[in-house]
Each structure stands twice: as structure tokens, then as C-alpha cells.
Amino acid sequence: MTFGRKVAKNRYLLLMMMPGAIYLLINNYFPMFGTVIAFKSVNYSVGILRSPWVGFDNFKFLFRTSDAWTITRNTLLYNALFIVVTPIIAVTFAILLNEVRNRLAARFYQSIMFLPYFLSAVVVGYLGYSLLSTEFGFINTNLLKPLGADAIAWYSEPKYWPFILPIVYIWKNIGYSTVIYLAAVIGIDNEYYEAALMDGASKWRQAISITLPQIRPIIIILGLMAVGHILNADFGLFYQVPLDAGALYPTTNVIDTYVYRALLTLGDIGMSSAAGLYQSAVGFVLVLTVNLVVRKFSKESALF
């Protein structure tokens, strides 16, 4: 069949896809081609297309700053921590929830745990402020003060944030991961446990020898997917929760917040587009690599 015949035969299906296809073209493909601006010195007066090419100058400037190192380190370390801690806590929660004898209670706990996931990052910023505000926050006024400890200026001391941000991240997201792992735990065939029971296996033994091996594929797949996106930080967490406090940048600035600030507060298109392309390109290579690993491990779980 010729191309023209094919189009004619499928014209209605093609027509259905057009709104979505045009949207992807504008929202995703135009920006992909737009990454060439990272190699330009953008001058609005002559327009982006006619702005002069500058080769790798923007990247040279970016990697000469200490920021490049800080944002890469922060992004990698926080995400690595999240990737390791999330399954440990979520799987533990899922196994424990599955053991709660009263199903209604288990369902209730899960619902409450899942609630923070639905709050916007702005709201989470407020909640954090109610706890951490130097003058009035709950921790300073109602925990440290009765203990006779000095108030801590949370929003101007970077050293506390490598602890605060992971706690907030876990608080907000663990309900989501728990739901996924709990579904996997519930899906395990009960025969395994019955057989283990006959052998006199304890609950602990059952968890280690049956539950964990059974849900191991999903733990590994989700972990590897997260590794593929290790350079993409949760913008809301790193921007809203520290309330964009400049003093905290050493431990809260990540690639995404850096690109945003360079573009919209400093107006530095060269630097921000270079950082953005650095993130996209390295991220792309990571996703491809991770996918190769996943294919080796379990073919049907690979993305492509």
C-alpha cells in the first residue's frame, strides 16, 4: 500500500490523534529543537533565530562557576538518598499494613498516610513554616524553648536542610509508594504462606523468604526508573519548602531551581539553557543505560 493510500484508509483515526499530536509537537518537540539556544548568545533585539552562535561558551561559563558543582552534587545526593530510603520505608509499611488484623483500621491508616501526597508544594511550604518559623514556629517555641534550648534560625542555616528536605519528601510521598507496594504484597499467592506455615516459619522468616523475593522485581524496576531520572529534582520540594531563602541555596539549590532562577530572576538565557541541556542530555543517556540494565534483568519490565 502506498503512503497516500494508507493515510486515506486511516484518515479518521489520524484525525482523532491530531489534537494530541499537535500538542506534543508544540509542548515537547519545539522545545527539543529549541535546545540549540544553549549554543547561542541570545539577543532579543535581533530575535532568537538570528542571534549569533557561540559554540560551547555558555557551557564553559556554567562549569567555571562553583554553582555547577553545587547543583549537581545536591541533585544527585538528594535523589540518591530518596531512591534508597523510599523502598525501605514503603516496603516496611506495606508489609506491616498487610498484617494489621482489622482491615478497616489498615484502610484508614493507608488513607491518612496518602493524604500529604495530594497537598500542593505551596501548602507544604506553609506547613513547614508553621513548624520551623524562627519566631513563632512550633519547634522553636513549643519544643526547644521548654527544653531550655536556643531558638534555631531554620530558614537561614543551610546545615539543617539535608535532614529537613528528606523528611518532608518522605512525609509527602511515602503514602504513594506504600500503595504501590501494598498492592504487590496483597497480590502474592497465599499458597506460599500456607506452605511456610506448615514448615513452622515465623512471620519474620516469611517476610524475608517469601514477601521480599516476591516483590523484588517491582522494587528493582521502580528503583532503576528513579535512577534514570536522578538528575531531575522535585522543583516544588526544593523551591517552595525552603521558601526560596537565599541563605539556604548551598544545600537547597538543585539543577531545576537553578535553571528557573537563572532564567526568570536573572534573565540569563545562556547560562540557564546550558544547565537545562546538560540536565536533559545526561538524563537521556542515563535513561538509556538504565533501560539496558532493566532489559538484562527482566525483559518485560523494560521501557523499550
Binding site: 499530536a21 506534543l24 508544540i26 509542548n27 519545539f30 528557573y260 539553557s273 536533559s280 521501557l303
Partner: peptide, 19 residues
């Protein structure tokens, strides 16, 4: 592929904003 590729590669904030 047209939609799948958008899940693994993106142009980033700056060109997206300029578009």
C-alpha cells in the same frame, strides 16, 4: 514512539518557556 520519546527526553525549561 512520538509520545513515548517525550517521556525520556525533553528540551528543558528554557526553550519550553520561550516557545
Amino acid at each position: 514512539f512520538f509520545i513515548f520519546f517525550t517521556m525520556i527526553f525533553g528540551g528543558g525549561l528554557v526553550p519550553w518557556y520561550l516557545v
